[in-house]
């Protein structure tokens, strides 16, 4: 028989199953992005062991337009990941996902109801606002 497991490529398309799947995809993506940033950040700050000039040289990279854009993206990833994480924490405690009942056609899953959807879009909006504020501060300095 042919193995037909979707594998990691099953994670890649966020458009097939509605807002929750989109949030799942974004949570994975931002988590991965923050992990990469964390590793880069450790490497960046470790430059201090090579003396003041090496440190300042590395710091100058973050003061460029490209560096500011990267930091803006990091701010957005951080805020979305945290806010959506709080939503997931609340959901796995059985809150905000509705109660079981008698399903009636057309079936609408209560766990994917308006409350959860609103929390997802609020997380996206918070991330966008934080990025805009970050841009204001970072590019305002330049």
């Amino acid at each position: 028989m042919k193995e037909n497991r979707e594998g990691v490529k099953g994670w890649l398309n966020p458009t097939r199953y509605g807002a929750n799947r989109f949030a799942y995809w974004l949570q994975r993506l931002t988590g991965l992005g923050l992990l990469i940033y964390f590793i880069a950040h450790v490497i960046e700050t470790s430059n201090i062991v090579y003396g003041k000039s090496a440190w300042e040289k590395m710091l100058a990279v973050t003061q460029t337009n490209e560096g500011h854009i990267v930091l803006m993206v990091v701010i957005g990833m951080c805020v979305f990941h945290a806010a959506n994480g709080v939503r997931l924490y609340i959901a796995e405690h059985g809150k905000g996902i509705g109660r079981p009942g008698r399903p009636e056609y057309p079936y609408k899953p209560t766990s994917l109801g308006l409350g959860m959807k609103a929390c997802i879009w609020v997380s996206v909006a918070l991330a966008a606002l934080a990025m805009m504020y970050g841009a204001y501060v970072l590019f305002g300095e330049a």
């Binding site: 097939r16 199953y17 509605g18 807002a19 929750n20 799947r21 799942y24 949570q27 997931l88 959901a91 796995e92 399903p103 009636e104 056609y105 079936y107 609408k108 899953p109 766990s111 994917l112 959860m116």
Partner: peptide, 13 residues
């Protein structure tokens, strides 16, 4: 991870 895809495709609610 509460992707919710299972509930989206369930034909019986």
């Amino acid at each position: 991870h509460f992707a919710g895809s299972c509930s989206m495709v369930c034909p019986k609610g």
